[in-house]
Amino acid sequence: MFELSPETDDDWWEVEALYDLCFAPGREALSSYRLRDDVPPVRGLSLVARDGQGILAGAIRFWPVLVGEKKALLLGPVAVHPTRQGEGLGGWMIRESLALAAAQGWERVLLVGDEPYYGRFGFHRLDGVEMPPPTNPDRVLGASLCGDAWAGVRGKVTRAA
């Protein structure tokens, strides 16, 4: 059993250590990190999952961005501790956080990832949405949290003010 709660300032370094464990060295060199530089993750949507002993088992973060002039959320990273993988924790965090985002009035979410995995959460390839290079455009995915929120949304993804 896991408890999902909003990430706090006290969680920051523990979450960073989990991301370092789960992702390749140099993860912060990825182009998506340029959209996160000096921008805090969205409070209340960036979540941590802890087991019954309070041990960090997973984390998910969201960042505000603009696509053209439209607001969107950038999902990522999402990570599950290697000892807890295969238990459905990652999917649960994604579903719960997307429901929270919709309840907070967010309309659209994008990420860079594999469509076969993220498609089960409503993500599909976005045409005309340009992440900073050298992002593979086939991996730029989006999900609408209300109606068809991606209809007509095109342009470069930039940092939110």
Rank of each mutant, 00 (worst) to 15 (best):
104 Q>S: 10
79 A>K: 08
98 L>E: 04
121 F>C: 07
14 E>D: 07
47 L>G: 04
89 L>M: 13
93 M>K: 07
26 G>C: 11
159 R>T: 14
47 L>D: 00
80 V>Q: 02
121 F>P: 07
20 D>G: 12
15 V>N: 04
143 A>L: 03
112 V>E: 03
7 E>G: 02
66 L>A: 12
13 W>P: 01
69 E>H: 09
1 M>T: 13
43 R>E: 15
101 A>H: 00
115 E>P: 08
63 W>H: 11
69 E>Q: 12
145 L>Y: 06
117 Y>Q: 06
147 G>P: 05
121 F>S: 08
123 F>W: 05
87 E>L: 15
144 S>C: 11
63 W>L: 04
11 D>N: 00
61 R>E: 11
6 P>K: 01
80 V>K: 03
157 V>D: 03
65 V>T: 02
132 P>N: 05
148 D>Y: 00
123 F>M: 01
80 V>Y: 02
30 L>C: 09
68 G>M: 06
121 F>I: 04
92 W>R: 15
58 G>K: 04
141 L>H: 02
111 L>A: 06
65 V>N: 03
66 L>C: 10
32 S>V: 15
11 D>W: 02
142 G>I: 00
100 L>W: 06
95 R>H: 14
143 A>K: 09
142 G>W: 03
147 G>W: 01
106 W>G: 01
108 R>T: 04
11 D>M: 06
70 K>V: 14
99 A>R: 15
92 W>H: 14
19 Y>E: 11
106 W>L: 02
85 Q>S: 10
39 V>Q: 12
77 P>M: 09
69 E>N: 10
144 S>K: 02
61 R>K: 14
94 I>N: 12
151 A>F: 02
2 F>Q: 08
42 V>I: 13
132 P>K: 03
159 R>F: 03
6 P>A: 14
26 G>F: 12
40 P>Y: 01
105 G>L: 02
104 Q>R: 13
73 L>E: 04
57 A>D: 06
91 G>C: 11
147 G>E: 04
51 D>W: 07
148 D>F: 02
47 L>H: 05
29 A>M: 10
33 Y>G: 01
84 R>M: 15
122 G>D: 07
